[in-house]
């Protein structure tokens, strides 16, 4: 049983096991299900993520037409070889967008931790697959590790944009992905916690201001940047860089910032990008003039 990141890390270190294993044992205990059953369900969720990325990389468009095909654009750009940052990080960006484009197009995805933030965790996992060559078992463990950190955030702060802004959705997802990347790359449990802290620190204050209230603009691109953030935070932690503010205190800060955030910036489509002239014009085009003035 763990209630915060400090306890999660201590459990893994004391038992000399992975954070993934701590989460698996916890799930078996809480649900009363067998280990095989729990692993099989996560295996299924991994397959759903794989299919969503594959579909997004073929190119999809949403009902509104606001989002689609950016994952494909990024893949073509990577293939052309003239990119400025790095191939793995851009692949993560492309695959994160692929998932969220499928989500916006009413395709099947796995919420991680929500539908709106579903791109970050699979985007980073499938991007490092070439480099780290994980086994199927290790990929499933990646999701349990991400889940363990998300579980702490969900129970101590929030994973809902309506309650805590985008920092609670894409911010949480970036922290979860960063921690899981560290463990997959062979880092220690405490390094995973540092990565989570570094990723989440850099998402603090991010508002949830979806244009027309749809999970499209800016959600798809926020997933792209959430994935990039997670990759850099994981590299920083693996380099031995530490967060001066402990992970649990960063999560606590995220919760308090979310509580202080105005309602107009928490998934109501009343402020931020949703309230820009272009944001309002898009809402009017999709829902009619009355909805845009609310």
């Amino acid at each position: 049983m763990f209630r915060n990141v400090a306890e999660l890390v201590a459990l893994a270190e004391n038992e000399q096991t992975k954070i993934a294993e701590v989460m698996i044992r916890h799930e078996i205990e809480v649900s009363g299900r067998s280990r095989e059953d729990v692993i099989a369900q996560m295996d299924h969720h991994l397959s759903v993520m794989e299919r969503a990325v594959e579909r997004g990389l073929q190119g999809v468009s949403s009902r509104s037409g606001l989002t689609g095909f950016d994952a494909v654009r990024m893949q073509r750009y990577i293939e052309a070889g003239r990119f400025l940052s790095g191939e793995t990080i851009l692949d993560a960006v492309s695959k994160a967008m692929a998932t969220n484009e499928v989500n916006a197009a009413m395709g099947v995805i796995c919420a991680t931790p929500t539908a709106g933030a579903a791109g970050v965790v699979p985007g980073t996992l499938f991007a490092v697959k070439e480099k780290l060559r994980p086994t199927r078992k290790e990929m499933i463990e990646f999701l349990f590790t991400a889940g363990a950190f998300g579980y702490v955030v969900a129970n101590n702060a929030s994973i809902s944009g309506a309650a805590g802004g985008c920092q609670a959705e894409v911010g949480s997802a970036a922290g979860m992905a960063a921690a899981a990347l560290v463990e997959l790359a062979g880092g220690t449990p405490s390094q995973a916690a540092e990565a989570m802290a570094i990723a989440l620190k850099n998402m603090l204050g991010l508002v949830c201001d979806p244009v027309a209230g749809l999970v499209e603009v800016p959600c798809v691109k926020r997933n792209a940047m959430g994935a990039a953030n997670a990759m850099i935070a994981a590299d920083m932690a693996l380099a031995g860089i530490k967060s001066r503010i402990p992970c649990d205190e960063v999560i606590e800060a995220m919760y308090r910032i979310g509580a202080a955030m105005p309602v107009a910036l928490k998934e109501t489509a009343q402020g931020g990008l949703a309230a820009t002239p272009t944001g309002r014009a898009i809402a009017a085009r999709i829902f009619g003039a009355s909805a845009a003035t609310k």
């Binding site: 969720h45 989500n103 099947v108 919420a111 889940g147 969900a154 979860m176």
Partner: peptide, 17 residues
């Protein structure tokens, strides 16, 4: 939230949980 599948899940048709 009690289960890891509340966090890594549900499997669903988008766009909004």
């Amino acid at each position: 939230y009690k289960s890891v599948f509340d966090i890594i899940g549900p499997v669903m048709v988008g766009p909004s949980s």
